[in-house]
């Protein structure tokens, strides 16, 4: 129980800080909306083409939004040595992983909750279906599982902004493919049962990488 109390204390601390500056959510949101705008502008005139490319655009956008948001995740922890303060506190390192992950999940979901309707609005593609909303949620969990680990790792390197995408993007390709596939199938009106395999892949990815990241997180933050 104290585990989750402290996880939530970390998330609450990030939330308070974010509410005051809106640094992460606002910058990631503006970026996401701009990318959506540019893509829908480029393909939007052709309804049929738009429906075909919509899943790819949507997930490319969310993947980049993830990179941008994770690259900020450990910045406040490094600024006045706060991460060292956390490490000197009587909590296991995994609490830090869970707490930072939960904050990132929260911020990503807020961005997506605004970006998804915006995408539907600009592209005239009905992406607000329950299938796509569900796949957005589970894929974001996978992004956060990997992204939080690599965010902590890249924060300890000399070129955070460069290292993070190089690490993050290849690893998440399987769930990116799966999410695109689910969105495609959902848009062509396939029943839930045909999406099941893809949800299974994403679910397996989420579980595996939550577990692996949890296990190796210690090595990433301790000198």
């Amino acid at each position: 129980m104290t585990f989750w109390n402290k996880v939530i204390a970390i998330t609450w601390k990030d939330w308070l800080s974010e509410m005051r500056t809106r640094e992460v959510v606002s910058s990631v949101l503006v970026f996401t909306l701009l990318v959506i705008l540019i893509f829908t502008l480029a393909f939007g005139a052709d309804r049929e083409l738009m429906t075909t490319v919509a899943p790819g655009i949507l997930w490319a956008t969310f993947a980049f939004a993830g990179v941008l948001s994770f690259s900020r995740s450990f910045v406040p922890e490094k600024e006045h040595g706060c991460l060292e303060g956390l490490m000197a506190a009587p909590i296991s390192r995994e609490v830090i992983y869970a707490g930072k992950g939960l904050s990132s999940l929260l911020f990503m979901l807020i961005v997506e909750a605004i970006a998804l309707p915006a995408f539907a609005f600009f592209s005239n593609v009905p992406v607000l279906s329950p299938q796509i909303i569900l796949v957005t949620f589970v894929t974001t969990v996978g992004f956060v599982a990997v992204g939080t680990l690599f965010s902590a790792l890249s924060a300890n390197t000399r070129a955070r902004e460069m290292v993070l995408p190089v690490l993050f993007l290849p690893i998440v390709i399987p769930i990116l493919i799966s999410a695109i596939k689910v969105s495609e199938l959902a848009l062509t009106g396939e029943p839930w049962s045909n999406l099941f395999t893809w949800f299974q892949i994403i679910g397996a990815f989420d579980l595996v990488f939550l577990a692996v990241s949890y296990l190796v997180f210690d090595f990433v933050i301790v000198e």
Binding site: L153, L167, V212, S213, V216
Partner: peptide
């Protein structure tokens, strides 16, 4: 760090 990447990568 590289070891962590190798583990995550192989999984």
């Amino acid at each position: 760090f590289a070891a962590v990447v190798a583990i995550v990568g192989l999984v």
